[in-house]
Design a protein around this nucleic acid. Structure first.
Lengths: 141, 141
DNA sequence: ACCATAATTAGTAATTTTTACTAATTAGTT
DNA sequence: AACTAATTAGTAAAAATTACTAATTATGGT
């Protein structure tokens, strides 16, 4: 939490009550995505008149400074960034329970080798299916 | 084109005028994405009262049978499937000119090795940046 | 501690994107 | 040619996102 605040400051964002509470709520979701809708509901339970503007803008800004990330396949879902050090990695998302498993390392060189002269600015990788628990459960039926 | 029609039939979809014209239009976009909006405009120039229903449903069905694919990062963009044989591959998308470059092969084993017991059902990979042409152009300025 | 000010937010609305539903039409089959 | 199930048009609503302005607030300097 203090770390997140520090990141806000480092990026010249003001530390408002709204942002603090938003971060606190988001920090529960390191292993699973929340919908922007749920976020809005929760935030409006604290700040009844909170505008979409505020919610969308903050999520967007948070994602830019690495506090938050959007799910690749469904941009209405968001999760807290597991590690602020920006160690680059990707995710496996379980379609059944929604659990997120971090994947180690990243095979981007696999692709950049095929792109001579190109400027590779970024990439999106997401693997999905059933986690080990759900695989076991669903197979034993 | 005949190939696409064959795929429609194989999947028990009826071959309607609307679908034929939609496929014909989409087939221009093998190397670049079109927005669903542009598709709708074009289709409505042929069928003035064509409903969203028809457009969205057909695109969704086409993507299910592999005629079409959505852009990972922006689901309002769509392109014609380059190869119907379903040879699995991924894309590089140029942010400047929109050109799509096919990437050979796929490093999914890189990840599945890290996921023992998991059921990996699919994955999304997209690399973006500037293509060689745009890199050259923008650097020479 | 106060002030100035630039950033942030609330409040309101509009726009964009997507989905829903039903009656009418149509492609494919017998 | 008739039957039937799929498809479409037409209409509407829901969901998601963006826009704009005035009011409020956090922060840095005095």
């Amino acid at each position: 939490m203090e770390k997140a605040i520090a990141i806000l400051k480092k990026n010249n964002y003001k530390v408002t009550k709204q942002r603090t509470d938003l971060i606190e709520y988001l920090s529960k979701f390191t292993v699973q995505y929340v919908s922007i809708n749920d976020i809005a509901s929760y935030m409006r339970s604290l700040y009844p008149g909170m505008s979409n503007n505020t919610i969308y803008r903050n999520l967007k800004e948070f994602s830019e400074i690495g506090l938050v990330e959007y799910q690749e396949k469904d941009k209405t879902l968001v999760k807290y960034q597991c590690d602020f050090e920006h160690r680059h990695h990707h995710h496996f998302v379980c379609k059944n329970c929604g659990k997120v498993t971090e994947l180690r390392a990243c095979p981007i060189e696999f692709f950049t080798d095929q792109l001579p002269g190109y400027t590779v600015e970024g990439h999106a990788i997401e693997v999905y299916g059933l986690c080990a628990d759900c695989t076991k459960k669903l197979n034993s039926k």
